[in-house]
Each structure stands twice: as structure tokens, then as C-alpha cells.
Design a protein around this nucleic acid. Structure first.
Lengths: 331, 331
DNA sequence: TTGTAGGCGTTATCAC
DNA sequence: GTGATAACGCCTACAA
């Protein structure tokens, strides 16, 4: 049990006024050392904790932020975990709100958060597609995580998928592969577009050309199976496959095995997202580009806190993605 | 922008006292119809919303609950989503706190939530192992989700893994398979133990015996590969494999394919957990027992709200798991 | 250095 | 039916 003792209780027990007690507890000047010491002792003994609700009411600041998940998806959770990790270390509480992808709910979710006097807003999406900024003007700082705001003046934290695409190709080249096939995800996904752009850039810089014409499809393994099958049926020679997601890589691996093509000896294979349940359980374990979701969360939280301190950031900032090297490219 | 207008503003604009305005807005008796109408009009025009912080301060009730994630894991998110879904529909805000598996953090997380006057507490774990109840006495109702409390008087919502184990075997029998192998997860996991118990019970009732001696191992696909390999090497005949997780089933599928055993024709295969990214992307798609995570979340939220309304529940309640039938047992 | 008073926005309890 | 007034717990003047 906690919080039962009020400031009044402490003041009375210490034989001083609430005003004095308040100052003493908060380390403000204008109190004698003797009083300060006594008040602190009593507070300790009474297990006194200031009531955040009352503090909020009088100050307008709540020491909490609102985390708004615009949609649902497995990528949101690690981001939110990063956010919480960073914030709870600083004593900031998180109010959660979720629109489950329903855009019409967005406004009322934000309003509910605002009504509880959150000091800042963190907008999380589960993909990296550019998103519209909040409809209305909000009176607190806002940071967007993963999906960047279309308004350049907003502060957004996301991952640099172009760079991720580049790193993937560079890795394949570094292990000596030069006949690289690329399996893309959905055309409507900015992640797919960016990763492809980066991959093609790096291919170009290295004087390489993909052995297939990269085509957009879906994020399902079935699509990847089709693509690899097509490659095999066409008799195309290839020694590396970069899939734009781990699920796609899982599908590719399936077809490769079925055709007696061994990974990584015959074909090196890698994915994107570095999604634990998959990359650690395929055979062999899958090399993948990490999205740095946890770091995005931490970074977003830090930028938000800075902004709440009056030091706002603007524009898009990128968490640095990393290559997670495993057996599927270990040769 | 919202919430700027206070009750005082409304009262002044309507030319009545705050007391009258309050009663009018809240539909309480003791106000003339004329006054009520006028006040409501003004409030509407001023876009008035009562300040939840002030309401909390005076009433001690905050209209919010604390959701505490004791640990981190992919099963927590769907549960939390279910909780939010149910609560937000009832205008209840969720304060989030996460101990990331650090038991020493637990108490201070709970205290932080309590300090913000949450009206109830929802404790979520990412596995079904029985967990100790909250250390200290808390002054609000508590509901445990997924991991049940060891105290029978507490209210816990989880999934009936014994029943899930039974259903899995029954399904295999229904599609005509009677030489069933079972691959278990970790011995330290109650889910593994319960699913095995259920499976053995049903085997018994049907007069069947597993073709292997079910052994506990790990939750990694590697373990499952070993088990299936051992089975094949031993020359054991089998026409069905039940894996205690989808990841394990993924490993099994891998080995079966490698050995030219087709699923489901030669061997029917199923998993547990019904985990989207896996079950929909294996080839063939994987039949699996759903853990009803979303329903657990909803149910837990509902029980908590009931308890906050003075109608507490006690003991363990089970969300009903369901068989998700897909191609891997479609024969 | 201290204590007192006013106010944050609401609700509830009184008199009127 | 209505309007003051006192809480809720805290903070920040200002007065002693």
C-alpha cells in the first residue's frame, strides 16, 4: 500500500505548515536545514509519495506521455517496448491508446490522451509508409515512430531501408556472391520500395546486375516460392537470394531445399526484419537485416523527452540498422 | 484543441452556478428542464469536456486501469490488444507498465500505477506458467491474464491447454490417423506439460498410444528436427505428428520434406499457438490450436470491469481454444 | 525562515 | 430549483 499519506499528514506530523513541508521535500530554498531534515524523515517514515493526480491538476503537467498505436502489427510491439524502456527509466508513465487501424478512431484516441494531460504524444505505426500528421493542432510535442509524418517539420524516427537494401547487397558481394536474385514484397509498401532502391544502388556501384528482374508481389511466403521456382525453371544461374522479409526468405528456403539446392553452399540466402521466431528456427538460421525496432523506440522516446524539455527536433532521423549474420550466408 | 473550456466557463456563459451546471451536465435531478437545456447547449458550443484529472482528484476514481506486463513476449501483445479493445469501447484508459521480466521491478511498476489512481490492475505474462500473486495488498481489483495466479482466490483468465492437447489428438483421429507422434516443448513450461497431459488423456480414451515416447526438449525448431529424425532413423511408422508449437512444427515439416515424406498425404502435421506469420507461410499452411489470446484479453478486461463494479470473480477461467484447420491436415 | 491563502476543475452538501 | 461552499492534494505566491 502506498500514497495514503498526504502532504498535510507529513506537515502535521512534522509540526510545520504544508507550505514549508512542500518546499522541504522538493529541495526548494527558503527552509532551514533542521526543518528540511525533519520533514524528510517524517515523509520517509510515513512512506509519503506526492499524489501525481494533484500535481497534474495544479501544474498542468502530468509526467506521462500518450503512446498511440495507429494500427496493429508485430513490428509495433518491439518499438513500444523500447519506448517504455527509455521512459520508465525516467519516471514517465505511458498511457496507451490503440485505433487498430481505424482512422476514424484516431482523433478520439488522441483527444482521450490529451484530456488526461499527457505531456507528449508518440505515434507508432507498424510499417514505414509515410503517414499524414495528426489532424488537429495538439498542445504538446509529438514524435512519430517507424511511419514518418509527411510533414517535414514534424519529428519522426524510422529505419533507413535504402541503407538496409544497400547493406544486404554489399554483404552478399563480400562473401563472394555476384549472381544475386532479389525477391521483393508488396508494391504498396515503402519498405519494399526503399529496400529495392538501396539494393539496386549498391548493385550498380559494384558493377553488378540482379539475375532476375525484381518484381513486387506480396509479403507471403507463397509469393517467394513462385519467384524462386520461376528462376529455377528458367534455368537461371544464381548463387545468392535476398528476400525483402524473413517470411519471404522462409518460402525461398523451402523451394531451394526441395530442389536439392543447399544453403549457403550453393546459394546464400538472407532476409530483412530479423524476426526472431523465424530467423533462429530455419535450417540453417537466417542472416537478416535488423530493423532496429527497439532502438527506434528508445530514440523516439528520447526525442520526445527532449522536446518536452523545450528542445524539439525536426525532420526524419534514422536508427541504424544492422546486419545479423547467421549460417545462411556463412561460407 | 479540446478541454480548454472548464465547467466554470460553461456555468458563467449560461448564467448559472457551477453546481447547477454540474448537475445539469451529469443528468442529476434537482435542475429545471430549462436550465438543463441551456447548460447543455452552452457546453456543446464551448466544446466542453470534463477534466478527468479533476474528476479523479475528487472522486478517487480515475476511469483508467493499469496494465502490467511482467515479461516480454510475442504472446503478450495480442492479449493486450484484446484488453484495449474491450476497455476503450467502455471509455476506460489504459496505463501501461512493463517490468521486462525483472521481478525486482515489479513492485515499483505496480506502485507507479497505483499512485496514478488506477481503478484496477491487469497482470499479463507471456506464458501460462502459474505465477505468484502480487506481493503487497493492493486497494483495487486485480485480474491475471494468461499466467494464472497461484492464489485460488484471485481472478485469472487463461487458456485450457489440457483441452487443447485433447483437441489436437481428436482431430488427428478424426481424419483417420492413428500412428501419432508427439513433439513436446520445454519441461519447465506448463503449456508443454498440460498439452501433453491432454494429448495422452485423449489417446487413452481412443485406445491409442503415441508411436514415440514423448520427450520434453526446447521450443526451438532444432529440437523438433532431432525428434523427427530420430523417429525416421528408428524406422518407426507414423502418419501424424503433433508439435506443441508452430515453430516446432516448422522444424518437423523441414525434416519431413527433406526425407521425401509428404504432408499431409503421408503424414498429417499440426502445431499449437496458431501463430499467423508461421502457420500461413509454411508449405502447406499449418493446422494449429489457437490460444485464443485476443479472447483472453477481452475476457480479462470484462472480468476486471465487473470487479470494479463490485462484482468480483474468483478462480481460473478458461477462454475456449479452437482448432484452426489448414492444409497440413487436410486429407 | 515560516505559516496562510488562493487556486487548479470537479463533485457533493448544504443552505436559500 | 438554485447558488454558495467545502472538500480532493498539491503548489506558489505573499504575508507574518
Amino acid at each position: 500500500m502506498l500514497g495514503r499519506a498526504s502532504l498535510t499528514d507529513v506537515a502535521r506530523a512534522a509540526g510545520v505548515s504544508v507550505g514549508a513541508a512542500s518546499k522541504a521535500l522538493r529541495g526548494k530554498p527558503g527552509v532551514s536545514e533542521a526543518t528540511r531534515k525533519k520533514v524528510n524523515e517524517i515523509a520517509e517514515r510515513l512512506n509519503y509519495e506526492p499524489n501525481p493526480i494533484a500535481q497534474t491538476l495544479v501544474s498542468g503537467k502530468s509526467g506521462s506521455i500518450g503512446m498511440f498505436a495507429a494500427d496493429q502489427g508485430s513490428f509495433s510491439s518491439p518499438i513500444m517496448a523500447g519506448v517504455q524502456n527509455e521512459l520508465s527509466a525516467n519516471g514517465v508513465t505511458v498511457l496507451l491508446s490503440n485505433a487498430f487501424g481505424d482512422v476514424r478512431l484516431e482523433r478520439q484516441c488522441i483527444d482521450a490522451l490529451l484530456a488526461r494531460n499527457v505531456d507528449g504524444l508518440l505515434i507508432v505505426n507498424h510499417n514505414t509508409n509515410i503517414r499524414p500528421p495528426l489532424h488537429e493542432e495538439v498542445p504538446v510535442p509529438v514524435v512519430y515512430a517507424y511511419a514518418a509524418s509527411s510533414d517535414e517539420r514534424d519529428c519522426s524516427i524510422t529505419v533507413d531501408n535504402v541503407e538496409a537494401g544497400r547493406m544486404a547487397v554489399r554483404h552478399m558481394a563480400e562473401i563472394g556472391r555476384d549472381r544475386i536474385a532479389i525477391v521483393c514484397g508488396e508494391a504498396s509498401s515503402k519498405a519494399a520500395i526503399d529496400r529495392l532502391q538501396g539494393a539496386m544502388e549498391m548493385m550498380d556501384e559494384l558493377g553488378l546486375t540482379p539475375v532476375n528482374i525484381p518484381r513486387f508481389g506480396t509479403w507471403m511466403a507463397e509469393w517467394s516460392r513462385q519467384e524462386i521456382l520461376r528462376l529455377i525453371d528458367a534455368g537461371t544461374a544464381f548463387d545468392a537470394v535476398i528476400c525483402q522479409s524473413d517470411v519471404l526468405a522462409m518460402g525461398a528456403l523451402d523451394v531451394l531445399h526441395t530442389h536439392g539446392i543447399s544453403v549457403p553452399q550453393d546459394v546464400a540466402l538472407m532476409g530483412h526484419d530479423d524476426w526472431g521466431p523465424i530467423v533462429l528456427n530455419t535450417n540453417p538460421p537466417l542472416t537478416s537485416m535488423s530493423n532496429a525496432l527497439d532502438e527506434i523506440g528508445r530514440l523516439a522516446a528520447r526525442r520526445l523527452m527532449d522536446a518536452m524539455d523545450g528542445k524539439p527536433s525536426h525532420g526524419v532521423e534514422y536508427a541504424s540498422c544492422a546486419l545479423m549474420r547467421r549460417a545462411s550466408t556463412d561460407c
